[in-house]
Design a protein around this nucleic acid. Structure first.
Length: 274
DNA sequence: ATCTATGCCTGGTGGC
DNA sequence: TGCCACCAGGCATAGA
């Protein structure tokens, strides 16, 4: 599940390869990935050149001369560069033919990913992007305004941190790691979190996210490595995927529970429920 | 206004 | 071995 650090890594890798390259053709093998009309999609992008690639939260933003393509990888989305048509596999749903017959493919086993086209400069008018909160890795993030949003919520703190309208970029892995660092139980109701505790949570999240970005993200449950996603943060995980292993702080066994409908890993001793 | 439930998908897993 | 029910999960949408 690519979260902010993984998408950042993909962005940087793709940027190195794609900037200045032109799209010659587009093959759409599964069209539900693309929102709106496929013909418009092709017309708008063929003969266009990759000018820049940005990221906001977990979204990739490919910028061309006039248009931008906003791409979300959801759970299993990956980009590959294929040198030959013969290398294209069954889960390569969108194929961008570049110059010199090199192919950029969007690969997605679960077909959950999305692509939507917009005019360059109007990306944040899209429904998806317009709703996003501040990015979790923003060093100037306004913790007070987050506190105002969550201080009356009865939802578990984990659900709130996963809510991209509150803060953008965290997913299941990094929320577990964040709450472990902050010593907060994921089931603790948001309204019982003090401003001081929220500061600890946000600082922990930034520590986790920044370290993960440095290490190129986390590669787990991924039987196939993707362009740009061969992270090393999986070696740094403290709780996520580690059920039955000893907590590095107190030696208590890590437990897997369910919070807000999601598989959640905690140290039952360090993260005491209230 | 808030929150919860459901649908989207396929490969892997565990039970029989 | 094969069949099948079930699970994983980010986000949009519908419903409470």
């Amino acid at each position: 599940m690519p979260e902010l650090p993984e998408v950042e890594t993909v962005k940087n890798t793709l940027k190195n390869f794609l900037l200045g390259k032109k799209i010659k053709d587009i093959i759409i093998n599964y069209d539900k990935i693309i929102k709106y009309d496929n013909k418009d999609f092709k017309n708008a992008l063929i003969d266009q050149t990759f000018m820049d690639i940005d990221r906001y939260g977990k979204y990739l933003i490919f910028k061309f001369e006039k248009n931008s393509l906003v791409s979300h990888l959801r759970m299993e989305g990956k980009y590959f560069i294929r040198k030959n048509l013969a290398d294209i596999t069954k889960h390569d749903h969108i194929i961008f033919t570049l110059e010199n017959d090199i192919y950029l493919t969007y690969h997605d086993v679960r077909k959950f990913g999305t692509m939507e086209l917009t005019k360059k400069g109007e990306e944040f008018f899209l429904k998806s992007l317009s709703k996003l909160g501040p990015e979790i890795n923003n060093p100037n993030i306004d913790i007070n305004s987050i506190y105002q949003k969550i201080k009356t919520s009865s939802r578990p703190i984990k659900a709130v941190l996963l809510d991209q309208t509150i803060v953008a970029g965290l997913g299941n892995i990094y929320v577990d790691e964040t709450l472990f660092l902050a010593k907060i139980h994921p089931n603790k109701q948001a309204k019982t979190i003090s401003l001081k505790q929220l500061k600890i949570i946000i600082n922990s999240a930034q520590e986790v996210i920044n370290k993960a970005i440095k290490l190129g993200g986390t590669t787990i449950r991924s039987y196939q490595s993707s362009l740009g996603v061969d992270g090393r943060f999986q070696n740094e995980l403290n709780v996520h995927t580690l059920a039955g292993k000893q907590c590095k702080r107190c030696n208590t066994l890590i437990k897997k529970i369910k919070v807000a409908g999601r598989g959640t890993y905690i140290c039952p001793n360090c993260q005491e429920e209230e």
